[in-house]
Amino acid sequence: MSLVKVNQVSYAKGRKQIVKDLNFQLESGKIVALLGENGSGKTTIIRLLAGLALRWQGEITLGNQKVGTATKRFTALLADLGDFPSDFSVQQVLDFYETMYGDFDLGKAQQLLTFMELENEDRLKNLSRGNREKLALVVTLSRKAQIYLLDEPLSGIDLLSREKIIQSLVRWFDEDSLVLITTHQLSEIENIVDEVLILKDKTIALQADLETIREEEGIGLEELYRQTMLETRRESHGLY
């Protein structure tokens, strides 16, 4: 049974159409990559599933409930640490999330902190960008959510930080949950992704099981993305 169902969903900001006629379904137990060019609407889709976008058209259900206030209880959006005071310690951030979310697992958070090589007494103002991203993932994955929405968790950070984040997704992935991740680091997520959604021309150009693609076509994630984008460009220019 599908955990996420998106049916004929469109969203515009003012006169600008961001996404149009989105249709896809996602199941639990998978890590799914949502791919597309900059400005293609990936973040918009994340916000739609998180219940943060307004005045959209169509139907979105998460766990058989219409997306909204109720579905936020089991949907974890990648944390934004920018709203915390810069002199907050890592422990204060954890305390806030434990107070805010009833499903926050402090023990799991501590395990993740140790794995990420972060200290409870570290101050946000002293953390590198990579360590801030690792902390954001710590507090996000420490919730016992059904759906994890990770928008560009690997963006602009060093290689070792990206490796830690990817390793943490594998190590702490819950088979009963769903992870939807947007990124441009295709080669680095190649081995952890089960399924891929490719966004082009404001809609889903392809949804595919990555293992099936490897077996039947003998290509990986990067080549699949390249071929899909080139194919849709040819179609849009009438080259077939």
Rank of each mutant, 00 (worst) to 15 (best):
V196R: 02
L224G: 03
T182C: 11
E195W: 04
H184C: 08
R226P: 00
L230P: 00
N191Q: 13
Q185A: 14
I198C: 04
Q227G: 01
R214Q: 08
T228V: 10
E211I: 06
E211L: 12
E216R: 14
E190D: 15
L186V: 11
G218Q: 04
D201W: 07
E215W: 03
E231N: 10
D201S: 12
E231Q: 13
E217C: 08
E190K: 10
G220C: 08
I181R: 03
V193G: 00
E190Q: 15
L199G: 02
K200C: 07
E217K: 15
E222I: 03
R233V: 10
L206K: 13
E188Y: 10
D201L: 06
G220F: 03
E223T: 10
E216G: 05
Q227E: 13
I192E: 11
L206Q: 08
V196K: 01
K202W: 07
E217T: 07
E188C: 09
R233E: 14
K202R: 15
Q227M: 10
R233T: 06
E190C: 09
G220T: 03
R214I: 05
D201K: 12
I189R: 00
S187L: 14
E217I: 07
I189C: 01
R234H: 12
I192H: 07
V193N: 01
Y225D: 02
V196Q: 06
K202I: 02
Q185R: 12
M229S: 06
L197Y: 02
M229I: 15
L224Y: 04
T212N: 11
L199A: 09
V196G: 01
D209G: 08
E235I: 15
I198A: 03
Y225N: 00
E235K: 15
R233L: 13
N191F: 02
Q207M: 09
R226Y: 13
I198F: 08
E231A: 14
T203L: 12
Y225R: 01
R214A: 06
D201Q: 12
V193M: 08
N191M: 10
L197G: 01
Q185V: 07
N191E: 13
L221R: 06
L224M: 12
R233A: 11
I213C: 02
E190F: 05
L186C: 06
R214H: 07
T182S: 15
Q227P: 00
Y225H: 04
E231P: 00
T203C: 09
L221W: 05
T232C: 04
L210H: 02
T232V: 11
T203K: 15
E231G: 01
E231Y: 03
D201Y: 13
L210W: 05
T182L: 11
T228M: 04
T203P: 02
E223N: 01
T232F: 04
A205F: 13
G220Q: 02
Q207K: 14
Q207C: 09
H184D: 10
R234M: 13
D194Y: 04
E231F: 05
D194F: 04
M229W: 03
I192F: 08
L230A: 15
E211R: 01
E195R: 13
E188N: 04
D194W: 06
L199C: 05
N191G: 11
Y225G: 00
I192K: 05
I189E: 00
L224Q: 07
L224T: 12
V196E: 03
Q185K: 13
L230H: 10
R214C: 10
L197A: 04
A205R: 11
R233W: 06
S187D: 15
Y225Q: 03
Y225M: 05
I213P: 00
